[in-house]
Amino acid sequence: MAAKGTVVIDRNRCKGCELCVYHCPQHVLKLDETYNTRGYRPVILDERSGQCTGCAVCAVVCPDVVFTVYRFPQPVRTPAVRAVAN
């Protein structure tokens, strides 16, 4: 599955408020099962779906500026790119 965009998440900045999870139009964000260094369950991108469009709605609603949002010139395989980005 190819994605049009991706997000890079600043894991330790996230407070797990879930506003992005509810607002994401593609439903590709979810909370991690593990905790970050500050004791919150941070948001992660669900890579299996590969449907991120890079619309940046998550970045607009995020109170903690955890997202950097990218768009690809053409759809690419997200997990490979994210492996480098993270």
């Binding site: 109170p63 500026v65 990218y70 768009r71 690809f72 980005a85």
Partner: peptide, 30 residues
């Protein structure tokens, strides 16, 4: 692929790298 990515949104320069003390979900951060 990473080099070809177009940045749609990144942290503004006018914000420091500090973690805010606000509660989760507080609009102050926005």
């Amino acid at each position: 692929a990473l080099a070809a990515m177009q940045v749609v949104y990144k942290r503004p320069e006018a914000l420091t790298e500090a973690y805010t003390h606000y509660c989760p979900g507080c609009s102050h951060g926005v």
